[in-house]
Write a protein that binds this DNA or RNA. Sequence first.
DNA 1: CTTGATCCTGTAGCCGCTACAGGATTTAGC
DNA 2: GCTAAATCCTGTAGCGGCTACAGGATCAAG
Lengths: 143, 143
Amino acid sequence: MDAITATRADRLTIGKLSQLTGVNIETIRYYEKIKVLPVPSRAENGRRVYGPMERRILAFVRRARELGFSLDEVRALLRLGGPEKASCREVREIAVHHLDDIRAKINDLRKLERLLTKTVAQCTGTTAPECPVLDILDAQRSK
Amino acid sequence: MDAITATRADRLTIGKLSQLTGVNIETIRYYEKIKVLPVPSRAENGRRVYGPMERRILAFVRRARELGFSLDEVRALLRLGGPEKASCREVREIAVHHLDDIRAKINDLRKLERLLTKTVAQCTGTTAPECPVLDILDAQRSK
DNA sequence: CTTGATCCTGTAGCCGCTACAGGATTTAGC
DNA sequence: GCTAAATCCTGTAGCGGCTACAGGATCAAG
């Protein structure tokens, strides 16, 4: 490998960064626009140039998104993990809050699942006079 | 109650319909625009007039949305529950497919919950050298 | 030297609403 | 009867979190 011309870890094009992190090129530019990612430096030809630091940040963002954090939360986490560290308590607060959201969502979905399962089960036989799925949507008002 | 001037169940304004179904006025008009609801008749003054049938349909839509069906699915369900009945099998298919989606979502969220719970737990003590939440976001690549 | 890959900016679209603006009526209180 | 507030109308723009173009510039490989 040529040490000068080879793509090195500290001179990434947006395409390489996209490959390495699994984040869409358009999404990377979008993150820059909404200030989730820092404005990168540019090569002489005007193209974005990324280093290992940017790569780390983007990987972090991706992971956080996978875990369901909103972009607002991601921005907050990045701020807290930044220069002024030692704010683990605040990070924890964001995470705990997010965890509450997740648990609430799981609960809701489980209720739905039970109701739908029950309803669809009645549907198995061809004996039903009317469609129980439509009925439950129609009539059911009780929780 | 005056039988002529009183608000009767078969001559609803959009406001009454909204109250009765719990669906926002703007949302009702939006549903009309995207053809989830049929185009209602109009009074002489140009205002929308709804009858009990429309109310039933809207209640159905609301319920289906609460159960997480997409508007596309709702449209399909309405079509199936319409004039050409006897398509319970198709309704069932939509419902089962939706149920699969819900179960997959629950699974994903449960995984997240476990991971986040574990991580936040490490955060309790003030003894941690670095913030485990940020660490897990940073480093963890394993499933 | 040409082709195709990659990059650039900018804008519009997706879902399912929600929130206006700016106007026309209608209803309620006095 | 009159005024003020409520309700209705149409139309457009915004939210989050992207994705998909259009229309161009530039780069790398054969």
